[in-house]
Design a protein around this nucleic acid. Structure first.
Lengths: 102, 102
DNA sequence: GAGAAACATTCGATATGAGATATATAACCT
DNA sequence: AGGTTATATATCTCATATCGAATGTTTCTC
C-alpha cells in the first residue's frame, strides 16, 4: 500500500537509516552504532523500512546486510508527477532558488 | 523544518486534500464535503498542511480559498536527489533490480 | 446590531508510534 | 552440546495524532 511508504519516510531516524545506506550495503549492527539508539529500536525501524520495500536484508552468516531498494522511491516520483505538471514542470528550477548560500 | 513536510504527507487524508487542490483553488467547505470528515477534522489537516507550507489560504469573504504551494515539494525533490544518483538517475525506469558495481 | 454562514480552536477520548528492557531465535565456534 | 554474537520479537510506558462535539471568531446580510 502506498501508505506504508509515506509512513516509513515520516520518521526521522528511518530517513537517517536510508541516508546511511546511500554509502552502500551495511550490517544492521553498524546502523545501530550509527544511530545511537537501542538495538531493538533500530531493528524495528528496519522492519518498517523492509515492509515498505525501501530496504532489503541479505543473510551473511550471523549478520543481516541491508541495502536500499529503488522501487518505492520510484513510486514516490510517480506520486510527485502530477504536482510537477501542476507547476509546469518547474519544480526543479524552484529547488535551486530555495538553496540559498550557507 | 523538513520533518514537518514528511509528517504532513504521511497522513492519507492530507494527501487527498493535496490531490483535490490539483484541480485548482478551492474553499475549505468544498474540501470538507469531498473528504466526508467532520469540518474541524479537515480544518486541522489544513492547518498542518499550511504549517508545512504545502498549501496557503486566501481570504475571500467568509471563505478561505486554499491552493497548493510548490516550495515544499521542491524540497522533497532535493531530498530525492541523492537516491536518484545512487541508482544512476534512473529512478523512473522501474524495471530493474539493483546490482552492485557502479 | 442580530443572526447566520464559514472556518478555526478547544476539549476529551481513543488509537497509534517510538522508545527501552527483557527475552527469543539463529548462526557461528570450540 | 554449550557459549557467544548478531538480530528479531514481546511487553510495557509515554508521548503524540486523530477524531467528533462543542465553542469561538470573523464576516456577511438584513
Amino acid at each position: 500500500m502506498e501508505n506504508a511508504l509515506f509512513d516509513a519516510l515520516a520518521e526521522p531516524n528511518r530517513r537517517r537509516l536510508m541516508a546511511l545506506l546511500l554509502k552502500g550495503e551495511r550490517p544492521a549492527g553498524d546502523l545501530v552504532w550509527a544511530l545511537r539508539l537501542s538495538q531493538p529500536a533500530v531493528s524495528k525501524h528496519l522492519k518498517v523500512l523492509r515492509e515498505a520495500g525501501l530496504v532489503e536484508a541479505r543473510v551473511d552468516g550471523q549478520r543481516r546486510m541491508y541495502r536500499l531498494r529503488p522501487e518505492p522511491l520510484a513510486e514516490l516520483e510517480r506520486w510527485l508527477d502530477p504536482y510537477r505538471r501542476f507547476w509546469g514542470g518547474k519544480l526543479d528550477a524552484l529547488e535551486h532558488h530555495l538553496d540559498k548560500g550557507s
